[in-house]
């Protein structure tokens, strides 16, 4: 009995610690941006897009750590897709491209990563549903068979990495209004990992990550630090 209580207390403390890490990193990143603005961006590197990618990886790792603390075994990974405009597409096309990956997902994925058009798969469904709700995929193959999930090349190349997953819309200020600026994925190598009890945690993670990304991208854009972004891994 005491062993169980001790285990529960340790688990609870780990979850709180992971939550703190997530919020801490976001606060530090915002402070960095404020400091730069104050110093007129002097002394900072020009390759802002690469630094952005690193930040999105860090965010993914913090989200991974948060869910790792809730789920048994080291089976969790996280990824972030963001809405990007495909340059020179006519009419202008918007796709959701991967910008952040945590540990647990192969870094080689970047070489074969595919973008998901806004009118297909998960983006389309979430946009149709007022960009609300959390999706939990318990069997991806069957979801594909039912046309509820669009498989990409990486799903076949790295099959064991994602067995089940939870997906949330990243809703935040897009510069003009609140909209779905991205999608947060929390994945597992194990079957039946995610339950309804994880949904509120996912909502929290999605909200705080969305808010941070919107602030970072919109501020850097307003400061003239980014005018576009180069494709990673190319």
């Amino acid at each position: 009995m005491f062993i169980f209580v001790r285990w529960r207390v340790t688990r609870s403390l780990n979850i709180k610690s992971a939550l703190h890490t997530l919020a801490h990193d976001i606060r530090d990143e915002q402070n960095k941006i404020y400091r730069r603005t104050l110093q007129n961006n002097q002394g900072y590197p020009a390759n802002e897009d690469e630094r952005l990618y690193e930040y999105f990886d860090r965010l993914s790792n913090s989200v991974k750590r948060y869910f790792d603390s809730q789920v048994e075994g080291n089976v969790i990974a996280a990824g972030i897709r963001l809405a990007v405009e495909v340059r020179d597409s006519k009419p202008t096309k918007i796709v959701y491209a991967t910008f952040g990956r945590s540990a647990g997902l192969s870094s080689k994925r970047a070489e074969t990563s595919e973008d998901i058009p806004s009118y297909e798969g998960i983006p389309r469904f979430l946009i149709d549903s007022e960009c609300q709700g959390i999706l939990i995929y318990n069997d991806i193959d069957k979801a594909v068979a039912l046309n509820a999930f669009k498989k990409t090349k990486n799903d076949d190349l790295y099959k064991g990495e994602i067995v089940t997953m939870m997906v949330a819309p990243l809703n935040a200020w897009d510069g003009n209004k609140t909209s779905m600026i991205g999608i947060l994925y929390v994945t597992s190598r194990k079957k039946n990992t995610f339950k309804e009890k994880n949904v509120d945690s996912m909502r929290f993670a999605a909200d705080i990550v969305a808010s941070s990304i919107a602030f970072t991208v919109n501020t850097l854009k307003n400061e003239g630090r980014i005018t576009g972004i180069n494709r990673r891994g190319i």
Partner: peptide, 19 residues
């Protein structure tokens, strides 16, 4: 059709990418 969807055009424009 994509134009009927409510998309984050302004945000997406900030992250224009070479595809």
């Amino acid at each position: 059709r994509e134009e009927t969807l409510r998309l984050p055009r302004s945000f997406a424009h900030n992250l224009r990418i070479i595809i």
